[in-house]
Design a binder for these strands. Structure first.
Lengths: 232, 232
DNA sequence: CCTCCTGACCGAACAGTGTTAGGTTTTCTA
DNA sequence: TAGAAAACCTAACACTGTTCGGTCAGGAGG
């Protein structure tokens, strides 16, 4: 090889993610990215086929870190909860890239791989294939919804904008520090309610699925009650 | 006025939404929009301050149609369900604009107004302010998550891409027709489980919150049990 | 009737975007 | 030492959102 390269695919990805985290998704341009790496824009194309591709790779790298090992115990409620938490945390660490994911998360390789694991585990736990698909989808709803409609990124820091006009809205969550905590608590509430409701709808015990952090119920395989839908 | 104008803010909005529905969010450019209206790009700026502004207005127009009247009965479960359904349907009708909403839905005027109504109704139903905020947030998670990680828009139509690689994933939902139904059913499942779980976590009756379409339980005000969080 | 004015639209341009073709430099291999 | 090849650069393409100044239409005032 000629002189040891300045660029590499992973260095580019890292720099891209850094810019996205710092300047937002719109703040990333190929020229700026190149400048950050001490290089001209055209040089990037020796390592990356396209900007869109680069973003997909960055996104995949983030999603790789999602931990789906929580299912190994065989308890679907524990698995669902752990998986969802890990997923949300991975996204919450880089909130600025979430709008890009919104362009079609299901396309993404890494996302599919994880969806497949969840689906398989749910089927193994006794759900029908269709139910497993719907539950996995619901989990995605919660995770992506939480990632992108978060209070911390959604509201302006200038709370005077809102406090007069929306009398019912709580004012405290407009402070960034409070907002992050509120985001996490809201997600935990949504997740807990969802998993609990799922168990109830299937005729299982009515005990709550466990407090925010620790787990409790051992749980076995869900019994068929078909409150929702069947077939396929 | 001189000759009666070709353009108007609402005509522009309608044309923009039409292009977005047809060609996707990236398919909308000011020049293309102008051409569609039989006009030059610069002319648009007499009626619209900026492309971003235009998109916000289009988005608001869509969100205006969300029906939050389901709360008027006083039953928070019914209200939550109806509101969420209406919200999702409004978004599902124009899936291509959802990625734009992802850039900060909480900023949006129309979104806030609705959030405020939901929040107020929940407080009136007996929830604490903080709980109401979290529940409203959770509802947003479901709605936005469902809108953007939908199977119908997420997967390619070429199912041969997936069928070998992800053995656990069901194949049927890759067909667009099936996907739309699956999206709706998944959302109903998620919503039903969430609302049911919410009731259970608050020590209320364990009966399911009602089948997909019709309602049942009358419900009163939730009792304090504080399984999740308290304060503020 | 003529004039003026105002509002709606157009032409051309600016700065910025992603991307490509072709050229230059550097270093390793034959 | 000649050649090859990788890594980077220069210049340009077509496109984007947006602005400036101009051009025309038609109603208002004299």
């Amino acid at each position: 090889m000629p002189r040891n390269p300045i660029l590499s695919a992973s260095r580019i990805r890292a720099a891209a993610l850094h810019i996205i985290d710092r300047d937002g998704l719109d703040g990333l341009s190929m020229r700026k990215l190149a400048a950050e790496l001490g290089v001209q824009a055209a040089s990037l194309y020796g390592h990356v086929s396209t900007k869109d591709d680069l973003l997909h790779e960055v996104a995949s790298e983030i999603l790789e870190k999602v931990d789906v090992s929580g299912f190994s115990g065989g308890d679907w409620r524990h698995g669902l909860t752990m998986c969802a938490r890990s997923y949300r945390e991975a996204l919450a660490r880089h909130p600025n890239i979430v709008p890009f994911l919104a362009y079609g998360p299901a396309h993404r390789e890494a996302s599919l791989r994880r969806l497949d694991v969840v689906h398989g585990a749910l089927v193994a736990a006794g759900w029908t294939r269709r139910e497993a698909t719907m539950i996995a989808a619901s989990l995605m709803y919660l995770v992506f919804g939480a990632a992108l409609s978060s209070f911390s990124s959604g509201f302006s820091e200038d709370q005077s904008l809102y406090q007069d006009r929306y009398p019912n809205l709580d004012k405290a969550h407009l402070l960034p520090a409070v907002a992050a905590e509120l985001d996490r608590d809201s997600f935990e509430l949504a997740l807990n309610a969802f998993v609990t409701g799922l168990a109830v709808l299937n005729g299982r015990d009515c005990v709550a699925a466990g407090e925010a952090a620790g787990e409790s119920a051992p749980s076995g395989s869900p019994r068929r009650t078909d409150t929702t839908a069947a077939s396929t």
